[in-house]
Write a protein that binds this DNA or RNA. Structure first.
Lengths: 202, 202
DNA sequence: GTCTATAATCCGATAGAC
DNA sequence: GTCTATCGGATTATAGAC
């Protein structure tokens, strides 16, 4: 979102591509759009990237490395498992609230990819974070199957952001529903106790 | 997915449009694709729909009315709230597992719509179901803010389906993770008790 | 590295016959 | 209602000069 100072043309192209692909998807962005945004001729892009597909993949990898890698720190600690999980969820909601482009880019790429691209993303982009979270899930809830649990955790965190744009138009909406800290608190409380006791009311 | 017998050309166009837009999104499908699929000339589509945008909106409304309206029955009953919620979640997972096109179409339209289209969808397509679920959430958990709770419920149910294609390539994957009954059981158990006790192991 | 120019294709939509 | 024919424009990507 914010304007950045890029060290070179290639990274400037990648940074703008992240914003544009996040906003309008692969087919919604033309090489002309990207070229105009960085102030080069369309043909200039092909000096750095073999084609549009490669530019898109590189943009996703660039964004993921920049935004997600710092979060693995919170997962791999050694302290109390619930404390690490809570810290991770708090940091993840904070990042997703701040990096709207990143969240939309991942959403786009998960929806608009064939099997081959999904396999490549799973192996080269998602795997490490997923494994770290799966190990932590195993510590927090030893009796549960870890894969569905990880999906539930990520879904609980991401879905409020995915639905943000349409929730505004649905009944009962309040501005505080966008607050990342409130979202994190809600998710952690739900994971800890379910709805049994209304223990997060205030 | 399955071949259907349509009563007229208009519904045949809508049915095929649902499949195509679900598979490749708005920009990924051309009017030529749709026309060829139903066996008419491209110009013929404009007899039934003013433009591509209207065809897409009508296809979403058509799919939602067909697939979701039957589910409101389970929400509006009068019996035990938890029982109604469990029945609704079970039916919703069953529908989402069966109607893959429908799930992808909603995902596409939520991601690839401007504010105006989202407002129109919220008012004319999502509102009734959302309200019914919100009322039930209020009964089940009187102490909680109902909007975030509804989002958590839907997210818990939908996210396993949204991530189905990529989960196959991630560690710990098992075929039973696709079983709608298992997903429903997992979600209900999580909502009831959180992860406190490993009470869904078997 | 970056440009101009352009090839080759595809797109949404319309006009008008039948 | 459905067709043929086509307009005007956008698209990815390449060729070749500088």
């Amino acid at each position: 979102m914010a304007k950045q100072a890029f060290t070179n043309t290639r990274e400037e192209i990648l940074g703008l591509s992240v914003s544009l692909f996040a906003a309008r998807g692969f087919d919604g962005v033309s090489m002309r759009d990207i070229a105009q945004g960085v102030g080069v001729a369309p043909a200039g892009l092909y000096h750095y990237f073999s084609d549009k597909e490669q530019l898109c993949l590189d943009a996703v990898g660039y964004a993921f490395k920049e935004k997600v890698e710092p979060l693995t720190f919170f997962l791999n600690g050694a302290g109390d498992p619930w404390g690490r999980l809570e810290a991770f969820i708090t940091q993840l909601t904070r990042m997703l609230a701040k990096e709207k482009d990143f969240r939309r880019l991942i959403q786009w790429v998960l929806l608009d990819s064939n099997e081959q691209r999904l396999q490549s993303l799973a192996d080269r982009v998602f795997r490490d974070l997923f494994n770290a979270l799966r190990n932590l899930a195993g510590e927090v809830a030893p009796g549960h199957d870890p894969q569905p649990l990880v999906i539930s955790m990520i879904g609980l965190v991401i879905y409020p952001f995915e639905t943000q744009a349409v929730r505004r138009f649905l009944p009962g909406y309040q501005l505080q529903h966008e607050d990342p800290k409130a979202i994190a608190r809600h998710v952690v409380a739900l994971l800890r106790n379910g709805l049994g006791e209304a223990n997060e009311e205030k």
